[in-house]
Computed example of a mutant assay.
Amino acid sequence: MIFRLDERIIFPDPQLAEPDGLLAVGGDLSYQRLLLAYENGIFPWYSEEEPILWYSPHERFVLYPHQLKISKSMRQVLRSQKFKVTVNKAFAQVIEACSAVPRAGQDGTWITDDMKQAYVALHQMGHAHSYEVWEADELVGGLYGVDAGRVFCGESMFSKVSNASKTALITFATSGLYQLIDCQVHTEHLESMGARFISREEYLNVLQV
C-alpha cells in the first residue's frame, strides 16, 4: 500500500514500503518534513513531472568509514595535493553541478528546482553540508547531503576531472564525523571503495541509536 501524505508532518512506518522501496506520495519539501524523513530512513526521489515520491528501500547501499578502501594510485593523488578541499563554502554551486548529472535509471535530472531550494534551505539551517574540490580556483568536484546524526545521507556528487569526486568522498569519510554514510544508489565506483548493501533494519538501528 502506498500512503498519500497531506499537510500533516508525519510518515508511515518505513517497514510498510513497497518491494521497490516506495512508501508514500505527496506532501511537501518543507525542512520539517525533510528532517523527519531522513531521521526515519526515508528520502524523496522523483522527476520534474511526477508528484513527490518518498522511498525507504529494503536494502541500503552504505559505506562504513572504517571500511573505506583507498587505492595506491588514489593515495598518490591525495599526497600530490593537486586538489584543495573545502567544506560548506559553495553548497549552492555543488548542488547545481550535481543537478546536471542524471541519476542511474533516470532520464534528465532528479534534482528539480524545488529540490534545490529545499536543500539550500536545509544547508542554511545547518542540516545539509557540502564538500567542494578545487583545482586552482575552479570547482571541479564535490558532494552534498543531509546530516542525520550518526548517519550522513549522501545525496549526490559530481566530478569534472578525474579523481575529484573520490577526493571529496575520501576527505569526508575520513573526517570521523559519522558512523555511516548512506550512498543511496549502487555504483561500481563506490563499491570499489568499500560501500556495500545492508538491510533496512540494520540501517535504522544505526540511524536511531
Rank of each mutant, 00 (worst) to 15 (best):
L5F: 14
L5I: 12
D6F: 13
R8L: 15
P14S: 14
A17V: 02
G21K: 01
L22N: 01
L23I: 03
L23F: 08
L23T: 00
G26N: 05
G26L: 06
G27T: 04
D28M: 07
D28V: 07
D28I: 06
D28N: 12
S30R: 12
R33D: 05
L34E: 04
L35W: 08
L35P: 00
Y38I: 02
Y38F: 10
N40Y: 11
N40V: 10
Y46L: 04
Y46C: 04
E48M: 09
P51E: 07
L53V: 04
L53M: 07
Y55C: 01
S56F: 06
P57L: 03
E59F: 09
F61G: 00
F61K: 00
F61R: 00
P65H: 02
P65I: 01
P65N: 05
P65S: 06
K69Y: 10
M74H: 13
M74S: 10
Q81C: 12
F83E: 01
V85H: 06
T86C: 12
V87N: 08
N88T: 10
K89L: 13
A90P: 02
A90R: 09
F91C: 07
A92C: 13
A92E: 15
V94C: 12
I95F: 14
E96A: 13
C98K: 08
S99A: 15
A100S: 12
V101H: 06
R103Y: 13
Q106W: 15
G108N: 09
T109Y: 07
T109W: 06
W110N: 02
I111F: 13
D113Q: 15
D113S: 15
D114I: 10
K116E: 14
K116M: 14
A121V: 10
A128S: 11
V133H: 01
V133M: 06
V133F: 02
W134K: 04
E135T: 04
A136I: 10
A136M: 12
A136R: 13
D137Y: 05
E138A: 09
L139W: 03
L139S: 02
V140I: 06
G141E: 03
G141H: 03
G142V: 04
L143P: 03
Y144A: 09
V146E: 02
V146N: 02
A148M: 07
G149R: 01
R150P: 11
C153T: 05
C153M: 10
G154V: 00
E155S: 11
S159M: 07
K160R: 13
S165L: 06
T171I: 07
F172V: 05
Y178W: 11
L180G: 00
I181E: 00
E188H: 12
E188P: 10
L190C: 07
S192P: 06
G194V: 03
A195Q: 02
S199D: 10
R200K: 14
E201G: 11
E201M: 11
L204W: 04
V206I: 03
V209Q: 15
